[in-house]
């Protein structure tokens, strides 16, 4: 393999990793605050991508469609919490997980009924679909744009978490620091904020995914969601930085293994699972993780 192919694969890895990272942040934030695997998160990403697609079909320009998609995903995320999770805050954990699965399955099948299961081509403006040729390296421009946008979003998220009152409240909830009430902040608002941020990032991740591949279908969120969750566990569930690191590791591994060992191409989707198992075996708290699940006596 020559150097330009190598660079090309690295860039692809960063790009794929960015997408996983964006989606993983949503899992990690929700898990941190509610100790819940939000099974519907991958499907919220799908909702985002579909809204962007439908808006464009209706003649709305791409940029505006993206904004609509983000809003739609945020609304879906917040509604999911309000309808399906909030009434069960004091119920056994298993009830919450079951409704989470119910919501996930509901969204998948609803979109399947409305739009059919056949993949639909996703169009994007020229400046996103251009191919760059540079010194033997051939990559679509998206693989540059995706990591850059991800980085910007990441800075915004970290700023919110570390510098704003609400962000600090999210972190204190995640680490079970009983300061939230003292600060006079309503936990419900924080939880809403967490779903809003996570869903917005998922929508952006979904649109990136749709532009890169370039097609969408009602089940697109399932496997990507599963992988992003694995990335979040790998990085250390509850930690935003961990979710990003986990996302990148997973993205790189998939690209590199397939590039160097094409025979394993068919098993690409299995790597996330193998990572997940290995992390649970050897370092259940993940790379950056705090022991969120330590029992409290």
């Amino acid at each position: 393999m020559d150097i330009s192919t190598f660079v090309q694969q690295m860039i692809n890895g960063i790009s794929l990793g960015s997408m996983y990272a964006l989606i993983a942040i949503g899992y990690t934030l929700v898990y941190g605050v509610l100790r819940l695997i939000n099974f519907a998160h991958g499907d919220i990403m799908m909702v985002g991508a579909f809204v962007a697609y439908l808006a464009q079909n209706a003649g709305i320009p791409f940029e505006l469609a993206v904004i609509l998609a983000i809003i739609a995903a945020m609304v879906t995320g917040i509604l999911t919490d309000k309808i399906a999770y909030k009434p069960l805050r004091n119920a056994p954990k298993i009830s919450l997980l079951i409704t989470a699965i119910g919501i996930s399955f509901f969204l998948e099948n609803l979109f399947n009924v409305l739009f059919g299961g056949v993949p639909r081509a996703f169009s994007a403006p020229d400046y996103l679909t251009k191919i760059i040729h540079y010194d033997g390296i051939i990559v679509p421009v998206t693989v540059i744009i995706i990591p850059v946008v991800t980085l910007i979003l990441l800075f915004i998220i970290l700023w919110i978490l570390n510098k704003t009152k609400y962000g600090m409240a999210i972190r204190s909830l995640a680490f079970d620091i009983p300061t939230v009430k003292l600060m006079g902040i309503n936990a419900d608002i924080i939880i809403m904020l967490v779903f809003a941020i996570g869903s917005a990032l998922a929508a952006i991740g979904g649109i990136f995914y749709a532009v890169s591949y370039p097609s969408i279908d009602p089940l697109m969120g399932v496997i990507v969601g599963l992988k992003a969750f694995a990335a979040a566990v790998l990085g250390g569930i509850g930690s935003v930085a961990g979710a990003v690191i986990g996302g990148f590791i997973l993205g790189f591994t998939e690209i590199v293994v397939v590039a160097f060992m094409p025979d394993l191409g068919g098993y690409k989707d299995a790597f996330a699972f193998i990572f997940l198992i290995l992390v649970l075996l050897f370092k259940p708290t993940g790379i950056m993780g705090q022991d969120l699940d330590r029992s409290r006596f």
Binding site: L226, V233, F273, D293
Partner: peptide
Amino acid sequence: FRVRGDYLAIVTLGFGFI
């Protein structure tokens, strides 16, 4: 089962795909 939490759900979901 060595870890606490809800990993069983996600691991078994992944297992189905694998």
